[in-house]
Every structure is written in C-alpha cells, then in structure tokens.
Design a protein around this nucleic acid. Structure first.
Lengths: 193, 193
DNA sequence: CACATTAGTGAACAAGTGTACACATCAACA
DNA sequence: TGTTGATGTGTACACTTGTTCACTAATGTG
C-alpha cells in the first residue's frame, strides 16, 4: 500500500498502476502481491479505509484547535492545508479516486465525504451555530462546504508542496469560499431563497 | 479521439488506456495512431481542445435560454445537466482529467474552467446582477459557482444516465447549492464577512 | 520444542505493450 | 494524368504484464 501511494505521489494515476510495478516499488517479488490483495481494486479499497483514518485524525485535530476560536473557518482551512501537505499522497489518491475507474473506490471516498459532512453538521449544531437552519438545510450547507474544500484539494495538489506563496493563496481563497457559503447559510430562508 | 472517449464512457480511466487499445476500438491498426498523435498525452490535449468547444456550445445555449428568465439558476443548471447527459463521455473525460496524470491536460481543463468562470462574471455584470460586488469578489463568486457545478458532475456521472429520478435529485441539490452561494454573494461585505 | 500460519521466492507462460520500418491506398490538385 | 501528401497496413522486436505453481524462510502459539 505504501508503494502504491508512493507511485501516486510521484504523479502516476492509481488507475494506471500495475501489480508488477507496485511490487517492484515495494522491493518485493510480484507474486507476493497476492498474499495481501486479490487485485488492484482490492488494494484501492484498503487504501480508502486508511484514508478514513487520516481524515478522522484531521477532524480530531480540528475540533481540538478550533473550539473556542473566533476564526473558526480560517483555522479549519489551515489545519486542512497542513494535513494535505503532510499526507500528500493520501490526498492525491483521494482526489484521483473521485473520478477513478473502480466504482467501489469511488463510492468509498464519496462515503467518507458524507461522513465528514455529517460530523461537521453535528459540530455546528453543538456549537449552536446556524441554529436557524433546518436539519436538511444544515446538511446542504455542510455538503457544500466539504465539496468546496475537496475541490481546493485539486488546486493544492497541483502546486509544489514547497511553494508556500501559492499554498497561502489557495488557503486564503478557500477561506473566502467558505465564508461566502456561511454568509449564504446565515441568510438562508430569511430572504427569497 | 472518438475511440478514446468511447472507452472512457465505458468506465475506463483515461490514464489507463493504451495506444493499442484505443486503435483497436477505433478499428484501425496500432501504427496508424502515430499518424495523428505523438502519444496518449497528445491525444488528451486534443480532447481538451474539443472539450472547450463543447463547453462553449453549452454557454451559448445557456445565454439564449436564460436571458429574461427569473429562474436563472434553475434554468442554467437544467441546461448543464442536459449537456452532461448528451456529451457524457466528454464530461467524464473532464472529471477524470482534473486529477489525471498528465499535468498538461490538468492545466488545460483548469484553464477551461477559468474561462468559463470569467464569462459567467461578464454575463452577471451585463445583467446588472451582483452590482455591489467588486471585480475580485465577483470573480470569487463565479469561481465558486463553477467549482460547485463541476463537482456536481462527479455526482451526475456516478449514476446511470437513464435514472431520471436521481438526476433530478442532483439537479435540485445543485440548484440549491448555487442559490445559497448567491445569497452569500448578495450579502457579501454588507455584514461581517 | 514442534507445528501451523503467514509472507516471500523463482521459474514459467501466454498475452499484451510501445514503437520502428517499408509498403499500400487514396484523395486532391497541377 | 501523374504526382504528392495524408492515412492506413503488416511484420517484426524487445519488453512488460497478470497469474500459476511448488518451494522456502520467518513468525508466533500450543
């Protein structure tokens, strides 16, 4: 799995990886592959599971650092950007998987995103933010937030991880996106929406 | 190019396609490939160019059908969904390319999206909507809109093109996303954003 | 310690891959 | 009509690929 991630991190697309290639990168003989996975799709699914853990770690950190901050959005985006850098390969895999060729991997990632959105909704409820929104509308908002952040991922991954200036730009832009969404959510249904 | 698109439409990822595979689908001998393209990346780039045309056609239709409608957002999303169905393979290619393995294709698609966003900004200016926004903020809004629609693409492409119910759901949800964004844009900078 | 499970090995095979080269076909135009 | 440029063909070569099978090394548990 590490070998596959490493190749993805080098710019290869997961769908184009072969068993021999992965085992070669892992420093192991091709047949060993079958001791762990039935095929590449299987490997992909297990990567999605690990991706889930990465995302949960990120959420935990965000909750810890953000609870009483007034710059909730800015902080959260910062944590996201930091994690995207630390776990670059995982996030690359995620970005690829959304339109990947394995339906199962696709669905897995989608499901991780849904989970993330629902946790975000819980947090906002708990913090008594967006109290005027119905459950459905809060859901809508969180879904939109998660999508926006996920799309920023593709921006983030398309620049060098050392290009602090560009990364800063993306962080600022993403923050403004979210601010605009929350302004919209704040006025939702109180006007002609 | 048609053959490559057809394979993508069948669920394959562009990055995993080979020259022989494409020529086989095209009903032509492998060596013929080199008469038209230098390699698969080259083919990808030419597909991006054609994708540009598809998007422009869509924009033209949207402008024609939407000028004096009060349901501007709803109509536009409808046109988008319709085009996504008609040109399913092109849009699949687009969704894949955003996180694809050819940097050039990636940049090409990204650039098409920027163009689309800037045209949208022009239209909004012309229609005297969002008149209170600075150029930069209008840009921000349009970028966010285009991203949101692009992400909906992955939803759209993950369901069967004949599943009218699910497609309708996606259309409605996307519409609400955009409405929320525009509500946010409408109140932008007038409150604590 | 012995034993069972797990992980890794090496050789083999049929099939598929990218690419090179010389040759054939065909449309368009002088 | 003859020539030319674009497109397609057939053969060939050196690799790479997925998967199989029988075998070995290491691991931890009774």
């Amino acid at each position: 799995m590490g070998a596959a991630l490493a190749l993805v991190g080098k710019g290869r697309h997961f769908a184009s990886l072969g068993i021999r290639e992965v085992t070669r990168q892992a420093g192991v003989v091709p047949t060993s592959f079958y001791r762990h996975f039935r095929n590449m799709d299987d490997l992909g699914l297990q990567l999605v599971d690990e991706l889930g853990l990465v995302l949960r770690r990120m959420m935990r950190e965000a909750r810890a650092n953000v609870l009483q901050s007034d710059k909730l959005i800015e902080e959260s985006v910062g944590i996201f950007v930091a994690h995207a850098r630390t776990n670059r390969n995982f996030f690359m895999f995620m970005a690829q998987g959304l339109a990947g060729e394995s339906r199962a991997v696709q669905e897995g990632i989608r499901s991780e995103m849904r989970f993330f959105a629902s946790e975000l909704a819980n947090d906002l409820r708990r913090l008594r933010l967006m109290d005027h929104l119905s459950d459905a509308d809060l859901d809508l908002t969180c879904d939109l937030v998660v999508r926006t952040v996920a799309f920023s991922l593709t921006d983030l991954l398309s620049v060098s991880p050392d290009d602090d200036y560009q990364i800063g730009q993306i962080r600022k832009r993403t923050t403004r996106f979210l601010q605009m969404i929350f302004v919209g959510a704040g006025h939702w249904q109180s006007d002609g929406a």
